[in-house]
Design a protein around this nucleic acid. Structure first.
Lengths: 347, 347
DNA sequence: CCACCCACTGAGAGCGCTCTCACCACCCGG
DNA sequence: CCGGGTGGTGAGAGCGCTCTCAGTGGGTGG
């Protein structure tokens, strides 16, 4: 492919020479070819092909100030975000959309806070056109690190730290946690259930608190005894369920804040001799394929379009920034995607 | 931080002016400061600090021809490599070592063969200093795509396609699958087991065939009825185990080619009324934390240092290449890491 | 038939950095 | 006291690309 006479890769110059045109013309053809007469363009394209020319990214970046790369920041504090199927789907959406935007995904794996410095330097160094991060716990310092780096950023999941509410607003993509929770609880009520419990997630995650808010929207008067907290894991769901059954053995429905906890709750219900859905109706959240169909009975749950959220994050980051340049209009700061109740056998 | 008078980030030039030295001197200080007198260097460092100077990566890459970035190619054919804990550990090792080398991780997610073109272009475009890939199925075209791109590459897992055996040899990192398998089987034999079955993995993965070879090394005369193939999943392990029990109800030990299948096999053994380890001793492979300790009894298995393998891949790629430049000596083409039998209750 | 316009092409100036030299003190031995 | 190091510094030439701006040719209206 590449010119065997020289060891290094062919440059624009080489292509220009071979095609008998100037560098500028080659550049135009390579970048879409607008404003170049057809026969000339064809000649250039042939030279490109013959030489196996590939544009030098660094040189291009140097002048355009665009990198064609976006950082995805994965903070892994205590639990495994990486192998989480939720995360995988989101990454897939991000990756697909990035490819569509001709951009690359630079994975920044942060293991502890000592690395914040490194991240800040990297982001500030102009290596990437923007950053994507996932809002983890509310007290995480990462968001402010990203913010100070002065690079455009979009979060996955509504950030819980105070600045988001006050300041100019940090762009994020999230599903309608509250609305989805409302729908789930309303559905349970429509089934005639009257003692509906909620297994909530960790209190320092907005996904948890928003879902809890949705539960309370529908059942403002609910007995606090019908509320227990888990940690979004199967075991945590089982523990919370045990707690609830101890307090309120008469409960007839459970809305769990995610599918993993619903699965744990299901096991505990079974162990205590409750039939699902006859005695206790159960609804989860997420519609995580690996969980939802593995349970017996299959889990009724609230679906969110995780991959779509990943794609939206990229669009918000890349197109949002572009939109701002062109017309000066403020791009949307946040996107909330719809949820959908998926009825299976558990409720 | 950055100079508020100009919108853009400060350049080397600006730092030089502020410190009252030349660009060259600033460059020297920024890159380690060798050969610059202490007081001058300090003056430069202060200017850097005051201006909040961060080197422009593109400009540096343009002249040094080093990107400080490595591509990690994730091909996701049918199954979920991404959420596989194995992969997560390997990526963690890669990420850590890359950080130590001051390099970034560019994630290239390949969904289907139509994207090979895109990958080839990217790799050939000199965006990265090298590529890391995982040898998937033997018939995958990806390796040859990577090879043709002419970029240094290291594989995780011994590649199975023929060129690896003939040609100049493709660098790879793998654990001693065959030796580990031998150790597992020998251990079962040392326990007095005489009818040792093997649940092998997919035949088009070298990890499977190498482990099978290890089994045969120790038991060359074994009844073919004691061999069944699974697909590295829990369900596949259960199916294979059922098959084995049908054929040889008298078997007294099983060596499964990975922990997931061992876990499936355990379930099937239990379902058929076999006690583990009393009636049937069971050994897995991988030492996958999430599986190995969740089983009852805990699984005896062959441990491989997955994270370490990830780190080695990076070293082989980056240091290997450097070594070649300096002394002309061929760097090691492959690294095989040791395995270790971890005894728990299942055997 | 000429001036003018438009569409296209080329020349050239950088983008911010590294790196090779040339240069300049200054110190040493002779 | 002078020639030849020697360690430190600066000047300048690119790296490969984009992009502005000037120039060139052919077509068209007056």
């Amino acid at each position: 492919m590449s010119d065997p006479t020289t060891g290094s890769r062919p440059t624009l110059e080489a292509v220009a020479e071979r095609a008998g045109v100037s560098r500028a013309t080659v550049s135009r053809v390579v970048n879409g070819g607008a404003g170049v007469r057809a026969p000339l363009a064809e000649k250039v394209r042939r030279a490109v092909r013959e030489l196996g020319y590939v544009p030098n990214h660094a040189a291009r970046t140097l002048v355009t100030r665009r990198n064609g790369a976006v950082a995805v920041i994965v903070a892994e504090p205590e639990f495994r975000i990486f192998s989480d199927p939720f995360f995988e789907q989101q990454i897939r959406g991000i990756s697909r959309e990035l490819t569509a935007h001709d951009s690359q995904l630079v994975l920044l794996w942060v293991e502890d806070r000592g690395e914040h410095e490194r991240i800040a330097r990297y982001l500030g160094g102009g290596h990437v056109d923007g950053a994507l991060a996932f809002s983890v716990h509310n007290d995480d310092a990462l968001p402010s690190v990203i913010r100070r780096a002065g690079v455009p950023a979009v979060f996955g999941g509504r950030p819980g730290w105070p600045e988001a509410v006050e300041g100019p607003g940090v762009p994020y993509v999230d599903c309608d946690n509250r609305g989805g929770a409302r729908e789930a609880v309303r559905y349970l009520r429509s089934l005639g259930r009257r003692r509906i419990a909620h297994v909530a997630g960790p209190a320092d995650l907005t996904a948890s608190t928003d879902r809890l808010d949705g539960y309370r929207d529908v059942l403002p008067e609910a007995d606090p005894g019908l509320l227990a907290h888990g940690d979004f894991t199967v075991a945590g769901g089982a523990r919370a369920m045990a707690e609830l059954l101890d307090r309120r053995p008469d409960l007839d429905a459970v809305f769990a804040a995610n599918d993993l906890m619903a699965s744990g709750a299901l096991g505990e219900l079974r162990a205590r001799g409750r039939r699902v859905p006859q005695d206790v109706a159960l609804v989860g959240f997420d519609d995580m394929a690996s969980v939802v169909e593995a349970t017996d009975p299959p889990l009724t749950t609230v679906r969110q379009d995780i991959e779509g959220m990943g794609r939206l994050m990229v669009r918000l980051l890349l197109d949002g920034a572009a939109g701002r340049d062109e017309c000066g209009a403020e791009p949307p700061r946040a996107v909330i995607t719809a949820t959908e109740l998926v009825r299976r056998a558990s409720a």
